[in-house]
Design a protein around this nucleic acid. Sequence first.
DNA 1: TAGCCAACCTATACCGGTTTAGTCGCCGCC
DNA 2: GGCGGCGACTAAACCGGTATAGGTTGGCTA
Lengths: 345, 345
Amino acid sequence: MESTRDAPRVTIADVAREAGVSKGLVSFALNDRPGVSAETRARILQVAGTLGWTPSLRARSLSSKRSFALGLVIARDPEVLGSDPFFTSFIAGVETILAPEGLALVLSVVPDEPTELQTYRTLVTDGRVDGVFLSDLRRDDARIPCLAELGLPAVTLGRPDQPSPFPSVSIDDTDGVAESVRHLVELGHRRIAHVAGSPAMLHGGRRRDAFSAAMSAAGLGNGQIVETDFSIAAGADATRVLLSQPERPTAIVFASDPMAIAGIGVAQELGVSVPDQLSITGFDDIEFARYVYPALTTVGATPMVWGRTAATTLLGLIRTGSAADVELPAARLIIRGSASSPTSH
Amino acid sequence: MESTRDAPRVTIADVAREAGVSKGLVSFALNDRPGVSAETRARILQVAGTLGWTPSLRARSLSSKRSFALGLVIARDPEVLGSDPFFTSFIAGVETILAPEGLALVLSVVPDEPTELQTYRTLVTDGRVDGVFLSDLRRDDARIPCLAELGLPAVTLGRPDQPSPFPSVSIDDTDGVAESVRHLVELGHRRIAHVAGSPAMLHGGRRRDAFSAAMSAAGLGNGQIVETDFSIAAGADATRVLLSQPERPTAIVFASDPMAIAGIGVAQELGVSVPDQLSITGFDDIEFARYVYPALTTVGATPMVWGRTAATTLLGLIRTGSAADVELPAARLIIRGSASSPTSH
DNA sequence: TAGCCAACCTATACCGGTTTAGTCGCCGCC
DNA sequence: GGCGGCGACTAAACCGGTATAGGTTGGCTA
């Protein structure tokens, strides 16, 4: 047992002494900066290697005023959050970029917006992170001016509805909704309803508008729309409302998979057979979508790719001071079993 | 606009000067340590307040060799991870304790165990965290000796099957499984099967053993058991296997809700009506459990409480050097609609 | 051959806290 | 009245890096 136990940490000074150079030069070599001859640099790195030196993150943080960490603050009811696999996949994607760079992810889950803003402030005054991901964009989002004022680099997941100094990484989700509607129309549906997400959230409003537009384009008016807060419970309630009408829709386009799955549940409970009497489409393609019965026809998002791209963009912004907006490939409709031609009536 | 823009940071030296004392004394006052008269302490804190001084986390980290952060490393396929709401709730619970203390949570999602162990090492050499949560305990878990050797404080979620220097926070889940079996037996079931989790994971094996024990206790032998890796796909496959037997079970006890929900889907797909022809119980009480049809009879875990308790325990361990094991109230059966008396035949 | 610049490297002052080794005044006690 | 001891406080070292203002060298120009 090569007891590293209580072994005093190897510092930059040890490396400098051993290599016969000054601390400063070791630092230069480490951060491969000009002003070190190739030969010396190699020697320094070699000595560092044999000594097993790892620069102290803490010391580096203090003197360079960086923290080598990125932040993600999620403001949601944890119960609701749990059923949404978006973040776990997103985070996994982020990690694939951060880990090799030796960067960490600091995660906060907070109950509401005021706490969220406060969390960002603390993150900044503590210098806990070098940048943050801004997800679940809201209408007139208070976080954008807040972060801008704090001077914290950020990347928005989706394009904000207001002037924003931050690059955005977005995915076109309107196309998927339009595709869903077209698919249903082609199957022969005419009374198509939409269980929308929260209008306060950008993607909620966007998908709703895409639904309306697609309906108009098909010559079916605006289509009936029920707004929710994206929660499973609200999705279930909305479905109940739609199905208890005298002339109920033959198809429902849901703004998210969790709501769609709850919708299937409600339909079954009411004795409305899916897809025979009611076709259902979702959005996200969460893992459950493939395993409920009937398997959910839905629009496939790619949160892992999103995470990876957002991380790359944010790193670029931090390192170079600027980064371009990125538009990910549009989410596409995945046809499974929950939507079919409407039966007679 | 009181431009904090470019305002040089207020440091401990400013506070010291303003209060007419030395830096050291300010530090003492801040960390309320003896050796400061009540009067002086009050003055210092008052000055700090009016100056708006927040001690620099980075400087504190460097000199005190603490990082004011806790870590959670999750080793799972992100796809599988997504459908398990355990972690998001757990994390939310952890946050309720950390946030008020000004501590952060560093999260890592890694694909496999080697990477996981490497991540712990990096976390330690970087001094990124002051302690970690150890979840998803495995048989003969390599992480325990690894962390012990690294000298990193940790709390295990559940009791390990090996000598462990770390406190554990556990919840009795065997009771809930036993309750499920008893419930089914009382309903009149005799052919009860179990879709188990991974035997490599402690809770997988424990629930399976609890199932066997309960079956024996009911005089029903050991009961048929199919082992899985806890993934939804495996849960679906296992159900398919069970239901395609000549003499199929009239009830299945699943080791997790996601698998149980997949089980309901498979049953429906095969035209086996739930609960009439097949009763199903789950474990976890994830949010979806209430919204599928029929609503899932399951065992209610409380991940948020678990998170809160684990955080408290870990903090105690870090601050005092020792902490006692905690046993949370046992998870109880929640009766909904997915289990009923078996019909005739 | 002095002059100059570039390339390479050193010395040292930071970053902003914590911690330790004292200093000082004052009280109690023999 | 000298001494021990204690509480309050200061000065300075220290944590382990980064940044910057010089100092050498050597080659090239004028």
